[in-house]
Each structure stands twice: as structure tokens, then as C-alpha cells.
């Protein structure tokens, strides 16, 4: 199976060059934040403070979804094609 190749590497379109810059952007480091917030259970494995009578363990992790969404959204907007 042969694949069409551009005539020479210089013909790589600007969008691809831009995508490469975006993929290497420092903004991407922000994506570590939600991992740190959720993969260390001692941070949130406690009962108090409660919110609407729900133990901290549960409402914290539901709230952490917002951390995930906002960081991913910021990175998307900063690196969008």
C-alpha cells in the first residue's frame, strides 16, 4: 500500500506546522492538575466538612470533575487549531 506524500517536506501546510507548535505548547502541562487532584486519595478520604449532608469524599470528587473540565477547556482554547 503506497501512501500519497507531499512533493517535498517544505510543502507541509501551515495548519500542520501550527498543530505541531500547539502540541508542544506549555499550556498542555495544565493537564496534570486534575490527575494530582484525584489520584492521591489521602487528600480527600475524609468525612468532614460535609456539604448538604454528603461526606467530603463524595462531594469533593464530584467537584473535581469541574477541575478536569476547566483545565481541559483552557488547554483546548489555548491550543485550538
Amino acid at each position: 500500500m503506497a501512501i500519497r506524500e507531499p512533493a517535498d517536506p517544505a510543502s507541509t501546510p501551515p495548519s500542520t506546522a501550527r498543530a505541531e507548535r500547539n502540541d508542544r505548547s506549555r499550556w498542555n502541562w495544565l493537564l496534570i492538575l486534575p490527575l494530582l487532584a484525584t489520584l492521591i486519595p489521602p487528600l480527600y478520604n475524609r468525612e468532614n466538612p460535609r456539604l448538604f449532608d454528603i461526606p467530603f469524599f463524595y462531594w469533593y470528587q464530584l467537584a473535581a470533575i469541574a477541575i478536569g473540565v476547566s483545565t481541559t477547556l483552557i488547554v483546548y482554547r489555548k491550543t485550538r487549531a
Binding site: A37, L39, N45, Y58, A64, I65, T72
Partner: peptide, 30 residues
């Protein structure tokens, strides 16, 4: 509590995959 792992699991999956899947998409479409 252990059953609640589904929440952190589906929080971390998207940031991890953000940079992985776009590369897979590109090379697959070429």
C-alpha cells in the same frame, strides 16, 4: 467507597488522552 473509583477514573481519562488521541487521529487519517 471503593465503588466510587469510577469518578476519578473518568476524571483522569480525558486529560491523559487529550494529547494522545489527536496524534492517533492525524496519523490514522493520513
Amino acid at each position: 467507597a471503593i465503588g466510587f473509583f469510577a469518578v476519578p477514573y473518568t476524571i483522569v481519562v480525558y486529560p491523559i488522552l487529550f494529547l494522545v488521541l489527536i496524534r492517533l487521529w492525524s496519523v490514522s487519517h493520513v
